[in-house]
């Protein structure tokens, strides 16, 4: 630990304090939320109205501007949970557990969104709402992994034990995700020649990919806002027996 600069170490310890998190993030939220709204608004309007239609799929390809960010966040959310799990198990940082609790339903929501938009997109592209395409199948399994984490947390009554149990599950899961993904991909190549894949359009021009980039950034910020909100609530609930939460309860108008 002595190689870590003093300031950084202090920041790390302060970050571990739920109270510090609650008080500091309050001022971040308007900025993050505003930036998210702006990016998503520009990206979506651009993507829906100004980007040219795809030469193969026509206008149905515009679903890409929400499908890709959702699919990306679905995976990023699980990885974030596993990182929090490691921090919780190694450094016993309570805040990491609270973040992990907040991420689970949000990540599951984005996973559901990725599946739903992918399935809606599939209808005009493949002619059916559901095919056992490699990517869809792995996202479905990812959704099951999220549901497992949420179920486990709900089943264990003591929050500390629930947090550590979920941390172990998230770490085991995150090691499995690439294995699941590659095995499913490989299984697909065995069973059917790869149909044309939806997201790898051959070299999109900037007028098509810039809005996608904006939306990916915007959804990332949106995800951050939502996780911070969830974590703040979790901080209050878990720290409800401390003096500062009691004082805050009496001070703040709901």
């Amino acid at each position: 630990m002595k190689y870590i600069p003093d300031g950084l170490r202090r920041l790390w310890h302060r970050m571990g304090s739920p109270r510090w998190f609650y008080e500091t993030t309050a001022s971040w939220l308007p900025w993050l939320g505003g930036a998210a709204a702006l990016l998503i608004a520009v990206g979506t309007v651009w993507g829906l109205a100004f980007a040219p239609p795809d030469y193969l799929q026509g206008d149905s390809f515009r679903i890409i501007y929400i499908h890709v960010p959702a699919a990306y966040l679905a995976q990023a959310g699980y990885i974030l949970m596993a990182v929090c799990g490691v921090i919780l198990l190694v450094w016993r940082m309570k805040l990491a557990d609270m973040v992990m609790t907040a991420v689970a339903p949000i990540g599951a929501a984005f996973t559901f969104l990725a599946l739903a938009t992918g399935s809606i997109w599939g209808k005009p592209t493949w002619g059916t709402y559901w095919i056992w395409d490699a990517r869809i199948t792995s996202v479905l399994i990812l959704l099951f992994l999220y549901l497992g984490i949420i179920g486990l947390r709900r089943a264990i009554e003591r929050p500390e034990a629930a947090g550590r149990a979920c941390a172990i599950l998230a770490i085991v899961g995150v090691i499995n995700i690439p294995i699941i993904k590659y095995s499913v991909d490989w299984w697909m190549t065995l069973h059917q020649p790869a149909t044309f894949s939806v997201t790898s359009a051959p070299a999109m021009p900037p007028i098509m990919w810039v809005p996608l980039l904006l939306n990916v950034l915007g959804f990332n910020l949106l995800f951050a806002v939502s996780v911070i909100q969830g974590t703040r609530t979790e901080v209050l609930v878990r720290e409800r027996r401390t003096r500062w939460v009691s004082e805050l309860c009496l001070r703040e108008r709901a």
Binding site: G58, D59, S60, I66, F112, L113, I120, P124
Partner: peptide
């Protein structure tokens, strides 16, 4: 949406609700 309006708007509406 070039005949695909139903799918595109459904996807966006669903996203808006979930978000």
């Amino acid at each position: 949406m070039g005949g695909h309006g139903f799918y595109v708007w459904w996807a966006y509406l669903l996203t808006a609700v979930v978000v």
